[in-house]
């Protein structure tokens, strides 16, 4: 079952990603992007990362891509915005991309990840996902642990282990990202809004 689902999601994700590259119409690209990102969310669910999958759907697919499509609509000068690349470029990109894919995939897949994980586990202990008695993660119930980790407490890592210092918690990024988002929001709003006219009546 897992294999079958994986095959479906992986094929759709990769196929749609390829379609994004090959498509010339921006809105179609956005559509394929949605499909690709959505299937990736499916992969996340298969990997027992429910919360990440849901976030992917809500923020990425429902937010970011909608934003992109919105941008396409605002900048579409013709009825269907198509900016074509020449076939020569495409062939060139295809060859280079194929070689690049070969390089990355070869490098990544050549590594014996299972052996590495076993080796690391021997020295540094099991990850929280494999620990007996804490395997709710195995079923995708990571929300609470994620919440605790974002507040800095790593119950999943430290509980019942001997540690000098608490393990890495993510309180700082969780908080600092909010400032970043605020700054970025202001920046985007600044660029997007028209320059207000300097006139006595401010609310005009």
């Amino acid at each position: 079952m897992g294999t079958a689902l994986f095959t479906v999601f992986a094929t759709v994700a990769c196929g749609a990603a390829l379609a994004v590259v090959l498509s010339q119409n921006v809105v179609r690209m956005a559509f394929y992007l949605v499909i690709s990102l959505g299937s990736t969310a499916g992969l996340f669910f298969l990997l027992n990362a429910d919360f990440v999958g849901a976030t992917q759907l809500l923020i990425y697919v429902g937010g970011t891509v909608v934003l992109l499509v919105f941008g396409v609509m605002l900048t579409a000068s013709g009825p269907f915005l198509t900016i074509k690349s020449s076939p020569g470029d495409l062939v060139q990109a295809g060859v280079v991309g194929g070689l690049f894919l070969g390089l990355v995939a070869f490098t990544v897949l050549q590594v014996d990840w299972e052996a590495n994980a076993v080796k690391l586990e021997r020295r540094y202990g099991a990850t929280s996902l494999e620990r007996p008695g804490y395997n709710q993660h195995g079923e995708g119930h990571t929300t609470r642990s994620l919440g605790a980790a974002l507040l800095g407490a790593r119950f999943d890592k430290d509980l019942g282990r001997h540690r000098e210092q608490p393990s890495t918690g993510y309180l700082l990024p969780f908080e600092i990202v909010s400032i970043h988002l605020l700054v970025v929001l202001i920046g985007a709003a600044y660029l997007a809004r028209a320059k207000r006219r300097v006139s006595p009546s401010r609310d005009a």
Binding site: I176, I179, H180, L182, V183, V184, I186, G187, A189, Y190, K195, R196, V198
Partner: peptide, 20 residues
């Protein structure tokens, strides 16, 4: 004066990023 808050927000925000 109009754009001041935006500019300094960006400047300071970027500096926070650099400090991080």
């Amino acid at each position: 004066n109009e754009d001041g808050p935006d500019f300094y927000t960006l400047l300071v925000g970027s500096t926070i990023g650099m400090l991080v």
